[in-house]
Design a protein around this nucleic acid. Structure first.
Lengths: 114, 114
DNA sequence: TTATTATATAAGCATATAATTATATGCGCA
DNA sequence: TGCGCATATAATTATATGCTTATATAATAA
């Protein structure tokens, strides 16, 4: 397979991953700040396994990275992804999700560890 | 649903549609020139119904438009799509597919009508 | 050590998607 | 009108996806 075709394949895979509302919102959110799984469970109002499975797909594709802090695992966007320009361009067009974090803080559910 | 959430939904839908190698390549190709269904069948080396079904999805989402010329129906990118900036930004990163048209011309399979 | 909390993984189910096969529609021409 | 080509649609099948439930792993605290 030549480089051009490979490129098309890889872009299609990335778009397929981001063509899911939960994952798209997740990536937008994690672009601004890292979050742990339990925060995402609260934000997306869905089950913990469901969140873990979405994160796994994003991580396998290199879109996000994880960072364990004690019992928590924090996820954030991987800014070294080969398609960084594409991804950043995309999510920059999306409405900010920072209010989600503010909501968490209001409820006292924000996890922060040095 | 507020505008922001709607926006996320709509972007996710568009990305899901473009998260398929055939449709992504198709849109890139149709950005540069209009093609009829039988040309796409030849280019993608797949069945005519399969191509028609992909085109239907793209048309339903407003990503492409059709233009009947006699017995042929030519498709091209709809530059009036509400997410035109997003879509154009995406496909501008993809390798040109013009060689596909050149191949068609070499084989004498290019349909051209006034 | 055991218990608790956070997260991951596995298995099962329901739904969605893409491709194929068969058939229908629409247009042009004799 | 009837035939042939281009395209669309319908029905079927195979596969992929996302969610749930149940269980496993990892870290911390008692």
């Amino acid at each position: 397979m030549d480089t051009a075709e490979e490129n098309l394949d890889q872009v299609a895979l990335t778009l397929k991953l981001l063509g899911d509302k939960t994952r798209l919102t997740m990536v937008k959110l994690l672009e601004d700040q890292e979050c742990c799984v339990c925060e995402l469970v609260e934000i997306f109002k869905t089950s913990q396994p469901s969140i873990s499975q979405h994160l796994r797909k994003l991580k396998d594709a290199g879109l996000v990275k994880e960072n364990r802090k004690g019992q928590w695992i924090f996820y954030s966007v991987n800014r070294d992804h080969p398609q960084r320009d594409l991804i950043h361009g995309l999510i920059s067009l999306l409405p900010s999700q920072k209010y989600q974090i503010e909501e968490l803080e209001k409820k006292g559910l924000r996890i922060s560890c040095g």
